[in-house]
Amino acid sequence: MTSIGTGYDLSNSVFSPDGRNFQVEYAVKAVENGGTAIGIRCKDGVVLALEKLVSSKLLKKDANKRIATVDRHVGVVHSGLLPDGRHFVSRSRDEASSWRSTYKAPIPVSSLANRMGAYVQAYTLYSSVRPFGITAIVGGYDAETEVDVDGAVGSGPKSGSGGKSKGVKEGGPYLYMIEPSGLYWGYYGAATGKGRQSAKSELEKLKLDPKDGDCISLEEGVKEAARIIYVAHEDSKDKDFELEMTWISAVSGPTKGRHEEVPKELREEAERLAKKSLEGEDEDEEGKMEE
């Protein structure tokens, strides 16, 4: 059943007779045109990467960052309508900051995803608003070490009641993707935007499920992320793009538990490898043709 002309697509809060909310589906269309964004949950951290399509040659290179820091340990990348993404990020920051002032601790990534999922969903309910035209990928690291509850007097009992239980670890790397409907799941690898199909099939080839044995490290993740963005860009090769990448490791890792940009040297190395692997494929194809 087509939505055009039936009248069921004119408003939020109105279902079509076969149970669809067309406004939300149009929002998904907005996302499908955005630059590819991916997230990879590795063994010891999360990588976020974005194919930032260059909309004008007059824009300064490497400026206008699109992957946002929401809290020390959380980053968000989104694809779709940029201003909607800005608002999503702003709300995420408010949630993270209010969690800190209530609980004196950083917000768990799952809780942030839950709250932002609820927030995005609320925009599908009312006729006075439109849904978010973005899909957001939320990546973060819940500290495994017993975080110093900031402002604590002393360090508390070493064991026993109110103390620490030995060998129990919580936290680790987390990755969530929130869609315009408000739907969100936790992922090992997430992709959205124009090149999501090829990105997803590349992600599926990676070892990301800890149940299948050792999964890839953060540094491998960075290189894979760069490669996948380059692969995903193949379909829209005529357009220029910049690769933007951020990462979050454990407190013991390279980013010390913070969400940070991937250092320039590492990013350039990853890009070099990504280009090389693509050239390799081309050569193979050419070789086949010759045969």
């Binding site: 960052k65 946002a68 820091t69 809290d71 020390r72 920051r93 993270a96 900051s97 800190r100 002032s101 004196k104 900031d150 402002g151 007097v153 951020t246 913070r258 969400h259 940070e260 940009e261 250092p263 320039k264």
Partner: peptide
Amino acid sequence: DVSDMQYLDRLLSSLDVQENYSHNNDD
């Protein structure tokens, strides 16, 4: 006062989080 120190510490933590919204340290 230690409680006022803890308040200031939280204030500085949130300031640091806000400082890191806008830029990354490697550039």
